[in-house]
Amino acid sequence: MAQIELKDVGLSYFTLKQETEALRDINLSIKHGEFISIVGPSGCGKSTLLSLVSGMLKPTKGKVLIDGQEVSGTSPKVGYMLQHDHLFEWRDVLNNLLVGAEIRRMDRGKAKQKALELLERYGLGEFARHGPSQLSGGMRQRVALIRTLVAEPDILLLDEPFSALDYQTRLTLSEEVFHIIKDQGKTAVLVTHDLSEAISMADRVMVMSKRPSTISTVHTILFEEGDNLSPWKKREAGRYNHFFNAIWKELEEHVIPTV
């Protein structure tokens, strides 16, 4: 059974001046442990889609289901990772990691143990008592990911988590985050502008059209070199360019012509 399911989902924004139809007829089904990337022209409602899955927004039409149950409000099954780490500068790294657990009133001792374990595992063990300002951008984003993991979600929603980083950090971090997510056996939905990131991390890439957006195509990313390739290996794989060009071309058609 699918873990995340969207059935004929539509969403409209209302302002005093106008009504904007952001999403229309979205049908989507994601299996447990799958990694999905979503790409599309800017402003097409990719992030809105994540907000729908997280339960922070309610669809105006259709249904969002997680494990067969309709989403109503935020669920502890879902973890969100944003473009900026938003670590609280008045808390040290360890206490930042406990934010989610604190909000959900989870067992503090257990959460602390898990946080320390994950820090150690992903190479940040010595920074538990440091302030966030003492960490580099890449380290901060890794802490943000661990913060999400401490709250023990089954599903991770990643909203352009690497776009605020420099190119080099971005490549290394996307590699690391990919391994962390696979290692933890989480389902992941990644929204990104970066095609190479989308292709190299995901099992399937979904392309969205311009507003009112819908999912126009789904590319299943399979390589002759084998399954379970790391993002780095995928970038070097034979069909990588084929996928890149196909998605690129498709996106070009969706961009509103400027001439």
């Binding site: 997280s54 502890p76 879902v78 973890g79 944003l82 473009q83 900026h84 938003h86």
Partner: peptide, 13 residues
């Protein structure tokens, strides 16, 4: 920033 509160919201705060 609004997104700091969005982060809190995503945990169901």
């Amino acid at each position: 920033s609004k997104t700091k509160l969005k982060l809190m919201g995503s945990f169901g705060a």
